[in-house]
Design a protein around this nucleic acid. Structure first.
Lengths: 191, 191
DNA sequence: CAAAAAAAATAAACTAGTTTAATAAATAAA
DNA sequence: TTTATTTATTAAACTAGTTTATTTTTTTTG
């Protein structure tokens, strides 16, 4: 049987004390452990009743494709992070794709809601997501692309290493060409 | 005694059935009904353990002031809407101000959390806020200011009427000058 | 209601970021 | 390991949005 220790210890962590036998069983039943190759779509616009994913290993992105076919990365999830459309069960406008080969625990919206009632701290996931997005929103609105890149470089250097540049530019809300320009300017300055 | 019917019927609504005596008492105890003149600050950057507000009458805004002293409106709350910093109790980077003379029900973070456990649907407030912000984020990122203005005009014409133009421009992430330009262009086109 | 103050409009010069296209470098595949 | 494909760079012309300053309109207040 698959190794559920990562998701179990996550729940133990949010519960604050050891899980009992029923709890262990319930969680292992609700979650499905999936091993997924990179560049695989887990969710696409139009889907309803989408699943939530907790990342054991790898890197995923949640993005949207606008009316001109341009992609915008909204967020990335790496080890020990959640990703999913919180607007589910209604039709999602989003896509989720693995950026690297990944291992995730997925859970349906319904089961997620059941656990949600038992583990109130699970709401921290939503609350934290909100706080994170709000910060990011303000950053993008009030700062230049260069400042936002610097901030990302400062706060999440590992993300920059793991992501192709065009995913970073899309996350920063600029074109790959412009990000390349920013980087060129920087590397000149560094000398 | 102040009229708590608005906040009570909100909780009755999210409960889905009539409130009993203790519930009525608890809610009325936790909330403080406040009448506030326009342009009054209810929350400012640096505050901790900030309160959440449910609007009975009026219009409020949540905004941030960036390093250059420029304001950015993140969201507005009108009748029957919540506003507050979901990142509380930690130090908030935000400001909340009344745009119109308003009547609100305010509640502390602690009491909010107590009710949160009893009325799980209260989490819809957070979830909806998140979904709303995510949508708005994508809009601002992927659309031009003119398209975003059109969308606001389409979806929330009443907001545009109630708000001074500089608050709208700040919400759209552009300068008042540019919004004025957009509007001038439009009114020419309309003829 | 007149005067003062705040908000909106207009104009012109400017800049951050886009677009298109061509080239170079890196990665994947055969 | 050579070829094909994907990703990143560079350049140049362009545009959406900014800045600063002035004028007009609207709102507030004494």
């Amino acid at each position: 049987m698959a190794d559920y220790s990562i998701i179990l210890s996550y729940f133990e962590h949010i519960k604050g004390e050891p899980l009992n036998t029923e709890e262990l069983a319930e969680i292992s039943t609700y979650f499905k452990r999936e091993t997924i190759k990179r560049k695989t779509l887990l969710m696409k616009a139009g889907d309803s009743n989408t699943r939530h994913y907790y990342v054991e290993k790898g890197l995923l992105r949640l993005f949207i494709i606008d009316q001109n076919g341009k992609e915008f990365n909204i967020l990335f999830a790496r080890e020990k992070q959640w990703i999913g459309d919180l607007g589910t069960p209604s039709e999602t406008p989003y896509f989720i794709e693995t950026v690297e080969n990944s291992v995730v625990f997925s859970i349906s919206e319904d089961n997620f809601n059941i656990l949600y009632k038992r583990y109130l701290k699970l709401s921290n996931y939503i609350r934290k997501s909100y706080v994170f997005l709000q910060k990011r929103f303000v950053s993008i609105l009030s700062k230049t692309a260069e400042e936002n890149y610097d901030e990302l470089l400062e706060d999440h250097p590992e993300l920059i290493e793991r992501l192709p540049q065009y995913h970073i530019s899309s996350y920063l809300g600029v074109t790959p060409v412009f990000l390349s320009k920013i980087r060129a300017k920087k590397s000149k300055k560094d000398k």
